[in-house]
Design a protein around this nucleic acid. Structure first.
Lengths: 213, 213
DNA sequence: ATTCGAATTTAGCCTCGGCTTATTTTCACT
DNA sequence: AGTGAAAATAAGCCGAGGCTAAATTCGAAT
């Protein structure tokens, strides 16, 4: 259930209303399973669901989703900072722990980390009160050819990809520029410091950037 | 399931073979539920179960029980040492986390703690290879009137009791002596440093001691 | 040796939080 | 208005438990 709420929350960042099949794809299950769960969540008033019209979180649902997300991101950061995990290892462990830790635990790791604002992948950590500064980011694929871009955030689901990106030095906070993008979905060439790298569309879409200040 | 194995393990320290009703009482459920579970565990070869004759862990079952126990105790210690929990708070949190953490996590907190041998309540932490030094302890209630006793271990289930004991300074490692024990299940009077305290049977039975060296 | 009561098991059924396939419905676009 | 895709139902399964009520078995005392 918490995973469904999280999924709906994350998908909502693009369009406010999320379709059954989007959730199904995200959760890697069949649309029928999703419909089923949406009905349950709707009964619990965690979700505003109209058949055939997609779904949206209610306030209660948003609250839970944000709290799970907060857990997840705090745990990720804690695992990296304190326990020395590499950034591609943290996601899976956090996915388990996020549902289990108490508020006490959350508060304590938050304090131990000095009330951090970002997780290891650059994702903002929701505050306890449900505040979450939503930055409007472009992904590297859709970014126009700018002189200077800064990596703000990297999607954390795919640890393979994370390892690969880390090896190239493509971490949050790093500056880069697009050298050129080949036409017809060709790869994108970027310069990072002195090095140049070629990124596929899939990979480039996982990287979210802002214009450098 | 893991909780059942843990329960059987802990009950086995007294008698090798554990009865259905003992497990039921420990797990706070009905004997029928236990029988049910024992049959499942028996099917999984985790338990050696003969109807009406009680139950015993197999090697595989012991291995799981010890691993869960190791998780539990490492987590308890970590929560206390690193995150600043008080010793009466750690048990509940550990009960949740113990089933969820990865071997990676276990290894990392074990290292962070310097491969500790005891948890905050004085219970030995099983080694990764399943080794567990079993000390033969007496509980304070049954202890003979000795000049000097040392608290080796305190039962961790009841956080009320733990708070009370901590307030009196009755912690593992502390030396004490029995002043007198009133007859007919009367309370036991102990001296701890300069102070004297009176302990009920229930409480005294939660405290395990060794003769001081 | 038989009986009797307590411990235990069996039978039957429930819950939660999921999952699936196969079929039907609905929506939106041509 | 018709059609194809998306979504919803229907029906059923799973694991990992839980319960009560009734039957059984064990062992201890007579």
């Amino acid at each position: 259930m918490e995973d469904y709420l999280k999924a709906i929350y994350e998908l909502s960042s693009v369009q406010p209303r999320v379709s059954t099949s989007q959730v199904a794809e995200w959760m890697k299950c069949t649309p029928a399973s999703v419909t089923n769960m949406l009905q349950k969540l709707s009964g619990l008033k965690l979700v505003d669901y109209t058949p055939y019209q997609g779904v949206e979180l209610t306030q209660a649902g948003t609250k839970i989703a944000l709290s799970v997300l907060r857990h997840h991101r705090l745990i990720e950061l804690y695992l990296e900072e304190v326990l020395g995990y590499s950034w591609d290892q943290v996601h899976e462990e956090a996915d388990q722990l996020e549902h289990v830790i108490s508020e006490e635990f959350e508060a304590r790791i938050d304090r131990a980390l000095g009330h951090p604002k970002k997780d290891p992948h650059g994702a903002p950590i929701p505050a306890k009160d449900g505040t979450l500064p939503e930055e409007r980011l472009t992904n590297l694929w859709d970014a126009v050819q700018k002189v200077e871009l800064t990596i703000a955030r990297v999607e954390d689901k795919d640890s393979e990809a994370l390892r690969y990106l880390a090896a190239m030095g493509l971490l949050p906070g790093v500056r880069l520029s697009i050298i050129k993008k080949a036409p017809f979905s060709g790869p994108v060439h970027v310069r990072v410091g002195a090095e140049e790298h070629t990124l596929s569309e899939t990979l480039a879409r996982k990287i979210h950037v802002t214009e450098s200040v």
